[in-house]
Amino acid sequence: MLESRPEDRDLDERLDELIPLSAGPIKTLVASAAVVGAAIASTVLIMGGYLYPRPTFGSSFSSGSFLEVGPARNAVSATVMMPNNSSRSVRITDIAFDGPGADVVDVGVILDPPYETQTSDVGVESSVATPILPRNQAAMPLPIVVPAGRTATVVVWFRPTDCIDKPGPWGLVDATVDFGDGAFPPFSNTVSLHQDPVAFIDLDGNADNGGESMMMQDADGSMREISGPLAGACEALR
């Protein structure tokens, strides 16, 4: 390592005033490792959703959902899923729905059904999901707590004001979440579920959900194909 000459002690003092000499390899290693360790710890806390509510990170999976006509035939429901991949439960306090050509009538949330463990006669354990109720019965009003590891399905009831589906994503949901009453830290966060919209409309005006067409469940429980959410809703509520 370059150093000034031994007789230049005065010069060393001058150099030290301009730029400090290194603290030495051991001290530098300890300090640097501490800083990097703090960054790793912060990242773990962030990804675990401990520092602020962050239920989803990375790509969300496609909901592959269908539209459902309400029992009173005055609104149609669509769903978007929000998995809580973090290590803390979060509370959904508000839902914002961006669906041009539709008026929102109501919003609710369905928690994915818990699994129960059943033991068969020969002692084999298996998980069995409890039955899923119809949306209008299962959806709960806000605010609602989503435990860690569970998935929330956001249900939006809407009435169409336009019957033509325009190209692009339709039905983008933003969920405002926090850690719940009194939970620390008291931050809220708006989670965009834009990677998982209700439908992707192609240039021909038809819904294209990963190569599959969109389905609608009528009030009598029958399923049929529809070209898009607005066109399908208009036809169902005529």
Partner: peptide
């Protein structure tokens, strides 16, 4: 880079 991984959204 480590913190960027933490905030990564896919």
């Amino acid at each position: 880079a480590i913190l960027g991984l933490g905030f990564a959204t896919g």
